[in-house]
Design a protein around this nucleic acid. Structure first.
Lengths: 153, 153
DNA sequence: CTCATTTCGTTAGCATAGCTCACGATTCCG
DNA sequence: CGGAATCGTGAGCTATGCTAACGAAATGAG
């Protein structure tokens, strides 16, 4: 069943690397895991879901504003918005006074989708978090704030 | 200079979302920032650097083993290894006893590259971390361990 | 009012990064 | 010896970001 797969590699350990190196690896790995959690739901990707969540939570805004909140360049957001509109989860309407802008908003279907899928989407992560101690969750809660502050700069 | 860009969107706040949602957003955002830090160094991407670091730190191993450590599927790792080999930072050699396997190892150039570039690569993150308090860094250090444990499952 | 400048959203094209499926070579084991 | 398992890889797809360039609309100096 199990073949020999041991070489001179040292075992993976809680290591003495720098904080930057450890944090980078942790973030890269968790990001990969999170993106992989879209298998059953074929239509909406993590990026789209993230944008739709932010839009739903913050209310109608312009595409540029949403791009800024998600820390993404406007052209990247354009594609996300187009995909969500095509799925009927979001509506585009003209800005009342400024002809250059558009107002995007989560549609009724989009809001329903979020309500229904938010737990399914984050089920994997929720389960992992549930396995932790309350202290560990507190650490992650604080870390999420700190990371967000760093990434927002 | 400043155009009106206010709609009915609520301001972005330290919010009352679930831990899962907050952690997801924080990780996705930081990951984007980290990948963007490759501007000066044209040749080696974050994924390649991450793999090379792990290989250097853990010693010679098979491609499959490296893929497992990086939490990536073997075909994904093949491309990373090929790119690193082409750059001369890694060597492939046949396994002494198992003809199916190969042994990959950071070359002298690869080790030198890591030693020289590790700080440059992580400069952006290092600078952000330096702006934090010691307490905040401790939180991130613990969080990195917890996240890695979750992602490793 | 006129027109150069700025802003907004988008299109086009590129690079990275991951996946699954399939396949050939090799090894293991009954 | 021959079927089954394993390893690495090739092919092809999708997602996710970026920059450059552009057209439409708004602004503001004259």
């Amino acid at each position: 069943m199990s073949y020999a797969n041991e070489m001179s590699a040292r075992p993976e350990s809680a290591d003495e690397r720098t904080l930057a190196a450890r944090l980078r690896l942790a973030v890269v790995r968790l990001n990969r895991r999170l993106r992989a959690q879209r298998s059953e739901d074929r239509t909406v990707t993590l990026t789209q879901f993230s944008a739709l969540s932010t839009l739903h939570k913050s209310g109608p805004m312009s595409p540029g504003e949403l791009a800024a909140r998600e820390r993404v360049q406007p052209p990247s957001m354009t594609r996300v918005i187009s995909a969500l509109e095509e799925s009927g989860l979001l509506t585009r309407s003209p800005h009342p006074t400024d002809g250059r802008q558009t107002v995007i908003e989560a549609s009724a279907a989009g809001k329903a989708y979020i309500a229904a899928e938010v737990s399914a989407r984050e089920r994997w992560l929720d389960e992992r978090l549930a396995e932790l101690s309350e202290d560990e969750r507190t650490v992650l809660r604080r870390a999420a704030d700190i990371i967000d502050r760093m990434a927002g700069t």
